[in-house]
């Protein structure tokens, strides 16, 4: 078991003929993911690394039974691409694109609420079930099938944590990058719930950062619902207020969203909060009984 994606997942890549799209479609395929289709309007009939290209997601889904979409469309067109996938009946959309206007995401999030589609991202590295299915831009080789679920707002910091888990022999079930934007499709709570239900997942590593109060809300959920150990690191202890730290959502506003507040809330909920990011793996190991 794992969450959201596995060997049965069939992927369509939107923006597959672009530089990023073609490169990562090939990488995902090489990892073993069933990349069954690509979409670039006007380029139907071509193929990328043996993956057939269609003009629309609807056509791609009809011909290939794709269930999940991976999006590499430029920021100003990405909102439309997400909705196109949802309206074509894709049930999981993973949007890698960084730089989508927040108001576009406001409309997209509202529109998705009336569909069956779940969105991961945007502005995220994607999702991977170790050894089974990679849908995103993360380096596959650092992952190893194991027992820890990972949820993160970041990219390379997630790789850092995953690398530690792998090196200690713990391995991962599924790793989900939820994205660094202020408005995202899926937050911590839904994923924590899924990991709690998943038989293979024995512990969850949560990587948060400054900005918003998603970590505080997750803390309340963890205290009430989680029986599995949760390990958390919050980046940005040294970030100044009022400044955006790279990610559009990483900003302390009006004294809200500090790393200190988040760590305190998580600690109060029984989460093992790690202050030194090089100790994420060791802490997970200890939580699982060494």
């Amino acid at each position: 078991m794992s969450i959201l994606v596995n060997t049965a997942t069939r992927v369509v890549v939107q923006g597959i003929t672009g530089k990023e799209g073609s490169f990562h479609a090939a990488q995902c395929k090489a990892y073993g993911t069933h990349v069954v289709a690509g979409v670039t309007p006007g380029k139907a009939g071509q193929d990328v690394e043996g993956i057939p290209v269609f003009n629309t997601v609807r056509e791609a889904v009809r011909k290939t039974e794709a269930t999940t979409s991976l999006i590499f469309v430029p920021p100003l067109f990405a909102a439309d691409a997400i909705l196109e996938a949802a309206h074509a009946g894709v049930w999981l959309v993973v949007c890698i694109t960084e730089g989508i206007p927040v108001n576009d995401m406001v409309r997209v999030k509202r529109a998705l609420a009336s569909t069956q589609t779940r969105l991961i991202g945007p502005n995220c590295p994607g999702i991977i079930t170790a050894g089974e299915c990679k849908i995103g831009i993360m380096p596959g080789f650092i992952h190893q099938k194991g027992k820890v679920g990972v949820i993160s707002r970041s990219g390379t910091l997630t790789y850092e944590a995953v690398n530690q888990l792998t090196n200690l022999g713990l391995g991962e079930t599924t790793c989900v990058g939820i994205g660094g934007d202020p408005v995202i499709g899926t937050g911590y709570i839904d994923l924590l719930h899924m990991f709690e239900q998943d038989d293979e997942t024995r512990a969850v590593v949560m990587i948060g950062e400054i900005g918003g109060d998603a970590e505080e809300k997750a803390a309340t959920f963890i205290q009430r619902e989680m029986t599995k150990p949760v390990i958390a690191f919050i980046a940005g202890m040294t970030a100044p207020p009022g400044r955006r730290m790279g990610h559009a959502g990483a900003i302390i506003t009006g004294g809200q969203g500090t790393a200190q507040d988040k760590m305190a809330a998580l600690e109060a909920a029984g989460v093992r909060v790690v202050r030194n990011p090089s100790e994420i793996g060791e802490t997970a190991k200890a939580a699982l009984g060494g």
Partner: peptide, 11 residues
């Protein structure tokens, strides 16, 4: 990466 950059500052 932004998250790792913040984590580096913290370290």
């Amino acid at each position: 990466g932004a998250g790792l950059a913040m984590a580096t500052m913290d370290v």
